[in-house]
Simulated scan of single mutants.
Amino acid sequence: MNQNAETLSDRPSAAAPLPAVLTRHADAETCADPSSVMTLLADSADTAGAFTSYRSTFAAGAAGAPAHFHTRAWELFFVISGALQVLVGEEVSILREGDFLAVPPHTPHAFAAAPGSEADVLFVFTPGMGRFDYLRLLGRVMRGEADPKEIAESSERFDNHYVDSPVWRAALEQSA
């Protein structure tokens, strides 16, 4: 269980067979790299596998994730503030404050802060799977503390499969 998440079980078990999960902002673990901060909220071990959730704040022009897909999980995006450029399949669009996106399994997608904009985004994966170790690994790679090959070697473990997307590469080149 995430040492920073606490369970709430003050409701009768018939109404809530699983305890609620509460992660206090002050207690949440963060992973930072030069252009973003990820706040780890609840990993699958905290939610009986129902979901994994974290929040990312991206600096203006920050890269998010290259084109990839998941075989088992939906990835949900909710833009808290700013704007996020996203690829879904072969389409690139901009999500703005209050926008929500749900990407189903096997659908290539990518994201980055929209050109000239910062982005604050809530991410949820459902069903959940242990992803916090993957996010920690990303931070270490971005800071030069780990070999990027470790990401490729972890694709099955974390259900994160990278793909080539000429559409996404062109969108990033255009916004540079």
Rank of each mutant, 00 (worst) to 15 (best):
M1K: 15
N2T: 11
Q3S: 15
A5M: 08
A5L: 11
E6G: 06
E6W: 01
S9G: 15
D10I: 14
S13G: 15
S13F: 14
A15D: 14
L18C: 03
L18K: 09
P19A: 13
A20M: 13
V21K: 10
L22C: 14
L22Y: 15
T23P: 06
A26P: 01
D27A: 13
E29T: 06
E29F: 03
T30G: 01
S36K: 07
V37K: 06
V37R: 02
M38C: 06
M38K: 12
D43Q: 07
S44L: 09
D46H: 08
A48V: 13
A50D: 09
T52E: 07
Y54M: 01
Y54G: 04
R55D: 10
R55I: 05
S56K: 02
F58M: 10
A60Y: 00
A60S: 13
A62L: 07
A63N: 08
G64D: 03
A65S: 14
P66D: 12
P66C: 02
A67E: 00
H68I: 01
A73N: 05
E75N: 07
F78M: 02
F78L: 11
V79G: 00
I80L: 08
I80W: 13
G82N: 04
A83M: 00
L84W: 05
Q85L: 01
V86E: 00
L87W: 00
L87F: 01
L87M: 13
V92E: 07
V92F: 05
V92W: 02
S93P: 01
G98V: 13
D99H: 12
F100R: 14
F100E: 01
V103N: 03
V103I: 10
H109V: 00
A110S: 08
F111M: 04
A113Y: 06
A113S: 08
S117F: 04
E118D: 06
E118G: 03
A119V: 05
F123P: 05
V124R: 05
F125M: 12
T126G: 07
G128H: 15
G128S: 12
G130Y: 04
R131D: 08
F132E: 12
D133M: 04
D133E: 12
Y134H: 11
Y134S: 09
R136T: 04
L138E: 06
G139S: 15
M142P: 00
R143H: 03
A146H: 05
A146F: 02
D147G: 10
E150K: 08
I151K: 14
I151Q: 05
A152G: 10
E153M: 11
S154V: 04
R157E: 13
F158L: 12
F158D: 06
H161G: 04
H161W: 13
H161V: 13
D164A: 13
S165F: 10
V167T: 15
A171H: 08
A171F: 07
A171C: 09
L172D: 01
E173S: 09
S175Y: 05
S175G: 03
A176M: 09
